[in-house]
Design a protein around this nucleic acid. Structure first.
Lengths: 200, 200
DNA sequence: CGGGATATTGATTGATTTCAATGTGAGTGG
DNA sequence: CCACTCACATTGAAATCAATCAATATCCCG
């Protein structure tokens, strides 16, 4: 994905700062350099659905449409690469490879959304949390210790659960010896296979 | 979307016939001419998640990747336009507009998946069913009478509910005077605004 | 006119939410 | 350096909504 990295500015966003809002013109595309970003939709009654977490290396905010379908907020202090979209679409009309890359990013997002859909369908709290931990582990730099940049509240809104249920489920997994709750934001995976067995 | 319609064959699929399977090479792309198609993922324990219903005019099975991420099955007897994918991607490398169209289809799928994600998140059965009815109404040819090509079982697996809950919720909506259950597969919407109020 | 699949309705159970209280930990100011 | 505080997290008890188990009912379709 080299081509897209060109001509971008690096911007710092503080914890909870909004990168862009739902419905805003999709003037830029973004890439996480460090930190973490969440894609958020808010319902009228205040309920919140987090569509995805974006970790270092992930592109986000890439739309085929003219406006952003989600808001994006920094989960923790984050460094973000910001690239002007018009430059890209102009390139895409000339350069087939750029066009193909943009399509791939959208397709990858679609894959993620579909997986997430599956997760939110008829799955128990235990399955949801297990799947979430496996995903975070797989996307973590390395090792069996996972650093969670997000709060329980974020996790709950991502999994379609309450913070209490997330908390209880983590405690349950610890009780079964599958994980170790080193601290609230740091979880050591003791048995990947056992977690995978919960992931159906 | 004219360009994509070229060079396709029309194929008939009977009720419940598989159009393609999850993991199969994505050799063709498809468009519903008449009937209805469901995108399906199966979990190991038999639970099923329906990712989308495709109605006449909808493209489906368009992948950026080399294989299909869902299975597709005819909900009712359906006439499907089948277009060789290699022809398209070849066109896409030469013709920027075709590339752009393919991207748009994927982006539209993404939008649908994201909406569906929202639906499957923390929403009550009443909200899910109301949203489903509104969506079907909006996609229906015209009028306030919606023909449902799919079974309660399909609806349940689409909404992440059981058939009993779907059935009870429809009965509840009828009791409240928002809809009329003309027959199992035909629902008359009596009050669009009232349904919308349930859609948060 | 059956007959089997599909749908509705009823009773009960159970998982998750809700309400409520307590615990923990990071950052701040005395 | 320690106590304080506020946000975040855990734990407990009760309520609730949907799932499950079970029994009809209805509708196509042959």
């Amino acid at each position: 994905m080299g081509a897209l990295d060109l001509a971008g500015a690096r911007m710092q966003f503080g914890r909870n700062a909004e990168v862009f809002g739902e419905g805003e013109p999709a003037e830029f595309v973004y890439k996480v350099i460090s930190g973490a970003v969440r894609s958020v939709k808010l319902l009228s009654d205040g309920r919140r659905q987090i569509g995805a977490f974006h970790l270092p290396g992930d592109w986000f905010g890439v739309e085929a449409d003219e406006e952003h379908r989600f808001s994006a907020e920094a989960v923790s202090d984050s460094l973000i690469l910001v690239v002007k979209r018009s430059a890209l679409t102009a390139m895409a009309t000339r350069d087939g490879e750029v066009a193909r890359t943009l399509w791939s990013i959208t397709a990858r997002d679609l894959g993620r959304a579909q997986e997430h859909m599956l997760l939110l369908g008829r799955r128990s709290a235990l399955e949801r949390v297990a799947t979430f931990l496996l995903d975070m582990q797989a996307r973590s730099p390395a090792g069996m210790t996972v650093e969670l940049p997000m709060s329980r509240y974020d996790i709950a809104d991502y999994l379609g659960l309450t913070i209490e249920t997330v908390s209880r489920t983590l405690t349950l997994l610890e009780g079964r010896g599958l994980i170790d709750l080193v601290s609230a934001r740091r979880i050591a995976v003791k048995s990947l296979p056992a977690l995978r067995r919960l992931d159906s």
